[in-house]
Design a protein around this nucleic acid. Structure first.
Lengths: 216, 216
DNA sequence: CAGGCTAAATGAGCGACATTCATATTGTCT
DNA sequence: AGACAATATGAATGTCGCTCATTTAGCCTG
């Protein structure tokens, strides 16, 4: 069934076949269809009906492509609550939305954590809203980023954890009796979700206390 | 200076040149010397004075090698406090030690988070101590792992954050004025460390509250 | 309107890796 | 002594990201 693929035209086409938007969308589609391991430059080019080398006229390398994808994913994160609800409720909703997005893109987590945000407009917009919300909620300037980073660290760690297999802590009871026991005590639930919920509730409670202590 | 490398003997040597211990140590040494990007199977073999293919008689693939390294790194994590101090103090010390270890091995973080611990003896031993400490501290069986995973998520997220460049949040003030302002308000400090300390203190405060509410 | 510059595509091919395989050698077990 | 298993070598393979020379077409300028 090798279909009749007429050899494509060389040279500059009438209208450009590629753009940042098209490349990013195709990459995200590919990831959602077949996972991150399927995201190769060759596969992406194929998806776009283009030769692999053509991509490099638009994106400098695969790492930059991942940053585009990251910014695309960040667009899905909901931080509208910061404009209409108290800081702690908004932070909770943001954290949930953030975790869910990256549970589906856990391979991006190590990329996010290390990449300057400046080149990513949606990402910058997100942090701007979060920072404004915390400041409006009474947090002092010099602690806002610490709060953001702390919560974000927990969120990204949890996103990684969400990608783990359910039996990650399974262990023979004779090797580690206490561990086997407490691991057994949480079967049935969505373990990663439960840990995230407990952790987030804990963090929020701690933050409320801390802010209260700051502003008597 | 291409030194006189006599062609090495083929076939089985009198004493095995390789073992899990030797391979892992050499890999860790290589990483500490030249970073993770230098950890290739060829470079590792070279470090051990052996042909690359010889490694595959001992380790099934690079991913398994990373798991050996992970277990090796976990051996450095200090969790002795769980046997001699209150659960919250021990948890704090553990988290610090854990973060510091993986700040130096952040490339392993996505591997840890997803790999079953069963094949890693030091890792199992670590969790056993932590679980026993929390249980002894009064935490109910069905919440111990949630606490462990929540703290671990924060720790691993923070370890990733520690590997980020200092200027990761730098942004033109006209694009995101509030963000620029709060980012500017924390210059001078070790930002990642400050966020970790704030977050850990917050989590511990929240956990103490929670346990107190459970056991009146 | 001719000539040149630039954008954007093609396809060949390179180098870095992880991994596999046929083969050789040697210690150990029967 | 002979068979087998363990452990090394080195050649080869396949996948990838990426580069480069080349081609083509639109646009700008004199």
């Amino acid at each position: 069934m090798t279909s009749s693929e007429q050899p494509r035209r060389r040279g500059r086409p009438t209208a450009p076949l590629l753009s940042q938007e098209k490349i990013t969308s195709a990459a995200v589609e590919l990831i959602e269809l077949r996972g991150y391991s399927a995201l190769t430059m060759a596969a992406l080019a194929r998806q776009l009906g283009v030769a692999p080398s053509a991509l490099y006229n638009h994106v400098s390398n695969k790492h930059q492509l991942l940053r585009w994808i990251q910014d695309h994913v960040n667009r899905e994160i909901d931080c509208s609550d910061f404009e209409v609800r108290p800081w702690d409720a908004a932070l909770e909703a943001w954290a949930h939305s953030y975790r869910d997005a990256y549970a589906r893109h856990s391979l991006l987590v190590p990329v996010i954590a290390v990449t300057p945000i400046a080149g990513s407009p949606h990402t910058v917009a997100m942090y701007e809203k979060v920072a404004a919300g915390l400041r409006a909620g009474g947090w002092p300037d010099d602690q806002v980023m610490d709060v953001v980073v702390a919560v974000e660290s927990f969120v990204l760690g949890s996103a990684l954890d969400a990608a783990a297999p359910d039996d990650i802590f399974d262990v023979p009871a004779d090797q580690a009796p206490v561990l086997a026991r407490v691991v057994g005590a949480r079967v049935g639930r969505d373990a990663a979700r439960a840990a995230f919920d407990l952790g987030l509730a804990t963090v929020l409670a701690g933050l409320r206390d801390r802010l209260r202590a700051l502003t008597p």
